[in-house]
Design a binder for these strands. Structure first.
Length: 880
RNA sequence: AGGCGCUUAGCUCAGCUGGUUAGAGCGCUACCUUCACACGGUAGAGGUCAGCGGUUCGAGUCCGCUAGCGCCUACCA
């Protein structure tokens, strides 16, 4: 028999089991077993950048709790780990670390390798997109290993054989196959239209990645002359777009302006005639009630412009600077081309903010109004605060730029997508409301193309005409079997590489897909759709999608979109939403705020089990403050588990217990039956809670009964189990201790995988390899104890605990040690309590060191606290 | 501006379909060097369950309103 260690050293124990689990393949998914014996998790691919913080470990712990419960139910677990290494954070780091920059025009160089040892004076090397993508992989591989190590420390029961990275060839293939499938189904289209654009990253972005930020701005009241006399004063926060004004509009019912409808206004500085028109979106309460429509200041402008069919005047360039425009040739219909040209000359090349400052000066100049009647701007700008759209990772406001982009048709599918959402169980349920809000509020199709490099390219080329102009209407589509491919390195079928970018030849699509276009396919990536239909059927739809709430509108939403478009399916049956870990000010913890705690230190000081305990105490959907105090409680629990187990097992060893077989039939003493009755209730409730994806309640209830087990039951049963003779009472005690401990260890196994495994290995483990693990042991069930009868007095254990506590209380008040004997005991209480006490009185007296005392038990009312009123007089002398 | 969620002891949180005097842990105070455990144990103090109104024999629990906090969506001239 294995020797039981005297002290619990979590560092060495956790490290030892981590290694052992990995070697034994404990967490392997078995591809042979059928779907209905499986539990499949669509775990979140982690963005590989920087380091792990407590927030990551928080939500991953939640997944693992559910997974470990299902595994103990005997299910075949598919629990993969993904890495999201697409995207901008990686691009930036690759540029810095390797001194390279992607140039999409360059062909792929298979011999090229990234070098970290570059000197500064070597300059920046330009490489092909695919080489750049490879450099990204090289960089992220090291990070992934570090992350994986942290996950192993945390005790995640991931099957590492199921790992994937969103940039690896398999993911690129699935992602491109998805695009082709949607292309064939007519679910994607290309459009040249005003799109939200980040001027720093120089790429289009999707609605889901846009956030509003409150920014200070100002209303500028500008005088527009009106043909035939008079003027209107429009109010704008974006005077720099004055040159792009295409119309002036007011609400149709606004009497102040109705006389002007149909007339022509003339813009100051640029002298462009623009129509004055009624428009529903104008709010009479705001500004002066009359406004200019520009191409493009905001979404309303885009909408209005689309409906109006008017000309388009683009002033802001892709880099966020005012474009060079030849105003002299009057492309915008200025009546004073020379004045317009001069005005523009001062603005061209400036950033939006600089241009705004400059044009305000110009508009404030005397005689800047049309016709020279004083300044064009009335008074000073009036400060205001307004919401401005930003890319969520961006630094400057988004602009609307007309560009060619790929879109997925989601707008006309809102109802179906809401219906799909209702087929999925959300935990907590109100998170579905967020999903529905988002879907209902969609106003654009999903823009999936990005003008970036690190990402999955579109498997598309365009034929070029004799002038070398691409024919976007008839793209050349890659064959499925050729994927993944890079259209910038490989020619389309029927063409040769020499024809690239030549008249009569072809051009590859230069863009990459939105990173969500790939991560929305995590279920298919894991299942192998559509290449491996058999495997796909075993893994899809999945059981569980764990994630956090800020990505409901992206990850959850897009995954539902893809599953629906590809197969008319839901991607998973359950979604669990973990909250955020916030700092004490209730702000989300994030690296940029510098308030991040590293899990590594916590594992080292308090153990991974203790960290998991803290995470498990927090329910799905609730944000929480990281609390070291609670981690300490977790550590205390695991140490207590260790010590109590050690004590119980030494006791069982002494009487030669049979660990192979739980002799539950031996359980016969009233106290033991009463305790088993409570244990049975706990097991039933904990299992029920886990079934409904609640892990916090099982932990709390198990913990509660476990402390009673230690504080009271062990004390009550101690003397009886010490008995030298093999009596039925001793056998009952032995069997109950065995059953209780074995049950607690299994109940705690999902939460505290290390310490429970350690204890399990001392006496309970059977056989070799994975099956010896507590994590493959069966989850406790009430069936295990069917042969144990219900006690005549169910309350006996509770009543005994109560009396024991009161005896202890008396000793504490007298400032005596708990071993101090009691001389006389008077107990008064109602009939029921006395009846429950009667069969276990001897156990209590032995545990309370009152065996020799005079006992008097009388009828009496139930006291305010507890079940009995107890008078205990202590002995004069301590026991020998 | 609409919606969702939260508000219970100093702190972190339990309280299921309404039912006897509101629970736990931490922290605090006092005590116990106890033969599994000082990475311990025992006991104690501490709450008008955010506020107001309603339903009910009975409300922390159900309904309405108000306030504060957090989030989602919208507003962007």
């Amino acid at each position: 028999m294995k020797e039981i260690p005297k002290k619990y050293d979590h560092r060495s124990v956790e490290e030892q089991w981590r290694r052992q689990w990995e070697e034994s393949g404990l967490y392997r998914w078995d591809p042979e077993r059928p779907r209905d014996e499986s539990f499949v998790v669509d775990s979140p691919p982690l963005t590989v950048s920087g380091s792990l913080h407590v927030g990551h470990a928080f939500s991953y712990t939640h997944q693992d709790l559910l997974v470990r419960y299902r595994r103990m139910q005997g299910l075949n677990i598919a629990y993969p780990m993904g890495w999201d290494d697409n995207g901008l954070p990686t691009e930036r780091r690759v540029q810095n670390v390797f001194g390279v920059r992607p140039n999409p025009k360059l062909p792929y160089d298979p011999a090229w390798r990234p070098r970290r040892d570059k000197k500064k004076d070597e300059g920046v090397e330009e490489i092909s997109r695919l080489n750049f993508v490879e450099a990204c992989s090289v960089l992220t591989e090291g990070d992934e290993e570090a992350f994986a190590e942290s996950w192993r420390q945390l005790g995640l029961s991931v099957d590492w054989a199921l790992s994937y990275a969103t940039i690896d060839p398999h993911c690129r293939r699935i992602s491109q196959l998805s695009f082709l499938d949607l292309f064939r189904k007519g679910k994607v289209y290309q459009s040249f239209a005003p799109t939200m654009w980040d001027v720093d990253l120089r790429t289009a972005v999707a609605q889901a990645e846009v956030e509003d930020r409150d920014r200070k701005g100002a209303f500028h009241d500008l005088r527009f002359a009106v043909d035939g006399g008079g003027e209107v004063v429009i109010s704008t926060t974006r005077p720099e777009l004055l040159g792009a004004c295409i119309a002036v509009v007011a609400h149709p019912d606004d009497g102040r302006y109705s006389d002007f409808f149909g007339k022509t206004a003339v813009t100051p500085l640029f002298h462009s005639p623009v129509p004055i028109l009624p428009a529903e979106h104008a709010d009479p309460e705001k500004g002066t009630g009359i406004l200019m429509v520009c191409t493009f200041g905001d979404v309303m402008d885009v909408e209005y412009w689309k409906r109006s069919g008017m000309a388009h005047k683009q002033l802001v360039g892709a880099d966020g600077r005012m474009m060079e425009v030849d105003y002299g040739s009057s492309p915008f219909g200025s009546r004073e081309p020379e004045l317009a040209r001069r005005s523009w000359a001062d603005l061209a090349g400036l950033t939006v903010v600089q241009a705004r400052r400059k044009i305000v000066e110009m508009l404030a100049a005397p005689d800047s109004a049309v016709g020279g009647g004083g300044p064009a701007m009335v008074g000073e700008p009036k400060p205001t605060e307004h919401a401005v759209k930003f890319y969520e990772k961006g630094d400057r406001p988004l602009e609307f730029l007309p560009t060619r982009q790929w879109f997925i048709r989601i707008l006309d599918a809102k109802q179906e997508l809401i219906a799909q959402g209702r087929k999925i169980a959300w935990h907590p349920p109100h998170m579905r409301t967020r999903y529905e809000h988002w879907v209902e509020g969609l106003n654009q199709d999903w823009c999936v193309s990005r003008q970036r490099y690190s990402g999955v390219p579109f498997p598309i080329w365009y034929p070029l005409d004799d002038q070398g102009a691409p024919d976007y209407e008839h793209p050349l589509v890659a064959a499925g079997e050729s994927l993944p491919l890079d259209p910038l390195s490989e020619p389309p079928p029927g063409y040769s590489e020499a024809q690239r970018d030549q008249p009569g030849g072809f051009s590859g699509d230069p863009d990459v897909m939105d990173t969500w276009a790939t991560s929305s396919l995590t279920p298919q990536i894991i299942s192998g759709w559509p290449d491996d239909p058999e495997r796909h059927a075993k893994l899809f739809p999945m059981d569980l999608r764990p994630q956090s709430h800020e990505i409901i509108r992206t990850w959850a939403f897009y995954t539902i979109v893809k599953a629906w478009m590809h197969e008319g399916q839901i991607p998973w049956r359950h979604v669990t939403i973990s909250g955020w870990v916030v700092d004490p000010d209730r702000k989300k913890m994030s690296k940029s705020k510098g308030n991040v705690l590293t899990p590594g230190k916590i594992f080292e000081e308090y153990s991974a089990d203790a960290y998991r305990y803290w995470a498990a105490r927090n329910r799905f959907g609730t944000d929480t403050v990281f609390d070291t105090q609670v981690v300490k409680v977790g550590k205390r629990l695991s140490v207590k588990l260790f010590n109590a187990s050690r004590f119980v097992l030494m006791q069982l060893d002494r009487v030669g217990a049979d660990y192979a077989r739980v002799p539950v039939e031996d359980i016969a003493s009233p106290l033991d039956l009463s305790f088993v009755s409570e244990l049975r209730t706990l097991v039933a409730r904990a299992s029920e809670a886990f079934e409904s994806f609640d892990y916090a309640m099982p932990l709390q209830s198990s913990e509660e009964l476990f402390w009673q087990f230690c504080d009271d039951f062990l004390e009550l049963v101690k003397v009886r189990s010490y008995s030298e003779e093999d009596t039925p009472e001793r056998r009952s005690a032995t069997a109950t201790l065995h059953l209780g401990l074995e049950t607690f260890i299994r109940l705690f196994a999902p939460f505290l995988p290390y310490v429970t495994e350690e204890i399990w290995s001392w006496r309970f483990a059977r056989g070799e390899g994975p099956s010896a693990s507590v994590h493959r042991a069966s989850w406790p069930s009430v069936e295990e104890t069917v042969s144990v009868v219900e006690p005549e007095q169910r309350e006996s254990f509770a009543v005994a605990s109560d009396l024991l506590r009161q005896i202890r209380g008396a000793k504490t008040r007298e400032k005596r040690s708990l071993r101090w004997p009691v001389a006389a005991l008077q107990v008064s209480g109602p009939e029921e309590a006395r009846a429950a006490l009667d069969p276990v009185l001897d156990d209590v007296l032995r545990a309370g060191v009152a065996e020799e005392a005079t006992i008097e038990i009388v009828d009496g009312p139930a006291p305010v606290e507890g079940r009995f009123a107890v008078e205990a007089s202590l002995a004069e002398e301590p026991s020998s």
